[in-house]
Structure formats: C-alpha cells, structure tokens
Nucleic acid binder design. Sequence first.
DNA 1: CCGCGGGCCTGAGAGC
DNA 2: TGCTCTCAGGCCCGCG
Length: 291
Amino acid sequence: MPELPEVETVRRGLAPAMEGARFTHVEARRRDLRWPLPKDFAKRLEGTTVEGLGRRAKYLLADLSSGDVLVMHLGMSGSFRVSHAGQERAPGNYHHERPKHAAHDHVVFHMSNGATVTFNDPRRFGSMKLVPRAKLEQEPLLRSIGPEPLGNEFDAAMLAKACAGKKTSLKAALSDQRVVAGLGNIYVCEALFRARLSPKRRASTIADRNGKPNGRAAALVEAIKTVLHDAIKAGGSSLRDHRRADGSLGDFQHNFQVYDCEGKPCPSCKGKVKRVVQTGRSTFYCPSCQK
DNA sequence: CCGCGGGCCTGAGAGC
DNA sequence: TGCTCTCAGGCCCGCG
C-alpha cells in the first residue's frame, strides 16, 4: 500500500464521487478484511450522505450525515475504483447484466450521483470501520498517530522531540507512525537520501541533549515535506498495486533516487546504491552520501 | 515503556 | 511449462 502520497491521491480521486452523495446501496461482498466488517455495515451506510472525505496519516475518513465516520485503510494492496452508470458495460454487451465483479472486489458503494466506488484488496490487509464521530478522538487506530508531516506544526523541533532518547535507527523511527504520520518504506528511504542522513544513524542524534533540534533535524523535515509534496503532485508511486481512483498510474516511481535501486549509481555521487535489511524490511541508501 | 520479530494474506517474479 | 521459493508500499500483538 500506499503511503501518504498514494492515500492522498486516492482521496482526491474519490472526493468528486463521494462528497455530497448518498449511499443508495452498499455491498459487503467479503466481510473478513483485516478486521471483520460488522453484520450491519451496509445498513449503517445506506441512506447516509458523505459530508466530507478527509485523510489522517494513511487512513481515509468519510464524515457521514448519520454521525458516524467511515474509517478506511488500504493495507498493502487495497485500491478504490470509481465508475459511473453505463461506463462498466463493454461495447457490444447489450445484455442488461449487472456488471461483473472482479476478483477481490470486497466492498461496493453505489452512490446517489450514479457513481460506483469499488474497494478491491487481494491481500485483505485493508480495513473499514464505522466510528461515531464523537468517539473518533479515542479511536485506538488513530489515537497514537503522530503529526501530519505536511502540516505547519510539523517542524524540526517537533521531530527532534519525538526522536530524542530513541535508541533505534532513523529508519525505524521515521517508519513509526507515532513519530510522524504517513511515511512508509519508500518515502522514509527517499527522505533520508534527500537529507543525506544514514538510515542506520541513531534517531536520537537529530536532537541535542535537551531534545532541541540540530541541523540534521531541519534537513530531515525539509526532505520529508519536499518528497511528499513532489510525490502527491505526481499522483503517488505505482509499483505493484497503487492506482489512482480513475485507474491511471502514479508517476513518482520514476523519481526514486534510491528506493528499489540496489546496485544502480547514486544520483549524487555515482557510487552504488546499497540494500540492507532493517527491522525486517529493505532499506535502500547511498553509504557514501548518507552519513 | 521500548524495540524486535511474527503473523496476517495473495500474487508476482526469479530460479531451477 | 510448472513448481517452489522469496519478497512486497502496513500494522497489530506478544515477547523479553
């Protein structure tokens, strides 16, 4: 899945189909997602209107007229597709059959504006949950998530404070949603490269003894914001699963400097990009540029 | 509390 | 061609 730029791309694609529209019919074709959908999932949605579609970290949040918030996560392989009445019928197919479901189409929203929004997720690490708006603050899935990296309040002081005293690596710290929201394996690698910091460096070394930020913290914040902005502008990265809601691919994978570039020349020094495994996941970096 | 490793799933791609 | 193996963008949980 999808890290922050991919989720934001999906949100922007879904918003025109969902905001201001009512769920006329909901199909919960498979309820055994990461967490089982409740039996009354479809019933609780039908008849309600989507007042807004937002995002927090890698979660999509649909604010509903019923007073619930529909919390959605794409897991590793989840995607949404939007289609409109008539569009799904192939030319020449004059039988008035219901459109066929593709494999792994688990949830289908039929909207009052004629849009059909389909959630597809082969690995089923994705999830949906209905949470009363008044209880959103206490929602365990969201409660301990750190600052939004593109928000004004996310700065060097905040990142340094979150990393101060951490014995773990910068790679692990930035991947921790409690430190900063929305980064995953790709954008952590890319941000560290742009900040010229080693993924193996101890996280605490971006702060001084009092938890105040140093130049490394400032460079890292700048790199995170830049890489996320650029990736959103490109519609996210399409490696295996991610597509925009209209089916088109994101473009940012062409701008990877190190991610998935093992053995290729570093764009900066022309040395070789190296792959190592940290906490069970691949890390890509340039050992000579990133210190 | 912290940090790590396992497990959840399916599919794509490499190697034989 | 077909089998087996490894790996994949995330995150919760239990362990030490």
